[in-house]
Design a protein around this nucleic acid. Structure first.
Lengths: 102, 102
DNA sequence: AACGTACTACGATGTTCATCAAAGTTCGAC
DNA sequence: GTCGAACTTTGATGAACATCGTAGTACGTT
C-alpha cells in the first residue's frame, strides 16, 4: 500500500489520545529511544520483547495520537518524536515524562 | 468502612499509572477542577455526567495512581492534587497537561 | 433512634486493547 | 524475475476497563 501515512495536524492532537498513547510500557520505551535519536530511527531495531505485528500496532497508536512522525525509507519506516508540536501544545509534558525515573 | 484510604508513597508512583489515570476525559476534568481549588474539594459537587458509583471508580483510580490525595471529612471526601509529588517526580508534566487547550 | 446525604462495594455488561500467529505487501539486491 | 528483509493486515483471544444499578455503610442532624 502506497497511501501516505496519516498524521494528525498539530491542532488535531488531543491530550487524552497523547496520554493514552504514552501510558503503555512498550510505547514509553519507544518514545524514550526516539528522544535519544533526534534524527529518528527504525523501531524494528529496538528489542522490546514483542512481535513485529505488536510493534506495528504500537507505532501506529503513537502516530495516530500525534506523538511520532513516520516516514518510509526503503523497506523500513523511520519514526521520530514530534517534539516541536508536543512542546507547543503541552509545554513540559514530554520533558516531565522523560524525566520519570520509573 | 473506616480503614484508612491507601495512597502510594511518592517513590511508589509510577509514570505509566499516572499517565493512564490522566488519559480519561472524566478524570481529566476532575484534575482540572482540583487544579483550580488548591484547598481540595468534594468531587461529588462536580457535574460530570456520570453516576456516583462511576465517580467513585474514577477517584479511586486517581488516588491509587498517586495523582490525588483523599481525606474523609464528615460524609464527604475531600480530594486534592498531589502537585508537590507530581512536580518532583515528573517536572512539567502536570503543567503541560493543564495547558492543553483540547 | 430515625432520617437524609455522601459515598462505596458488588455484580453485570459492553467495549477497548495488548498480544499473537499467519498470510500478505513493499522494496532493495542479486 | 526471484529472494529476503521489514513491515502491515487480518482475525482471534484474553485481560482490563468505563459504565451502570442495586444494596450497603458512615456520618451529621433532628
Amino acid at each position: 500500500m502506497t497511501t501516505a501515512l496519516a498524521h494528525p495536524e498539530r491542532d488535531e492532537i488531543r491530550i487524552t489520545s497523547v496520554l493514552h498513547a504514552l501510558a503503555d510500557p512498550v510505547r514509553l520505551r519507544i518514545v524514550r529511544a526516539l528522544a535519544r535519536h533526534e534524527e529518528g530511527l527504525s523501531c524494528g531495531v529496538l528489542d522490546l520483547g514483542v512481535t513485529a505485528s505488536t510493534l506495528t500496532h504500537h507505532v501506529r497508536t503513537l502516530r495516530e495520537a500525534g506523538v511520532v512522525r513516520v516516514r518510509p525509507q526503503g523497506t523500513s519506516r523511520i519514526s521520530s518524536l514530534r517534539r516541536d508540536d508536543l512542546d507547543a501544545l503541552f509545554p513540559g509534558l514530554l520533558d516531565g515524562v522523560l524525566a520519570a525515573r520509573r
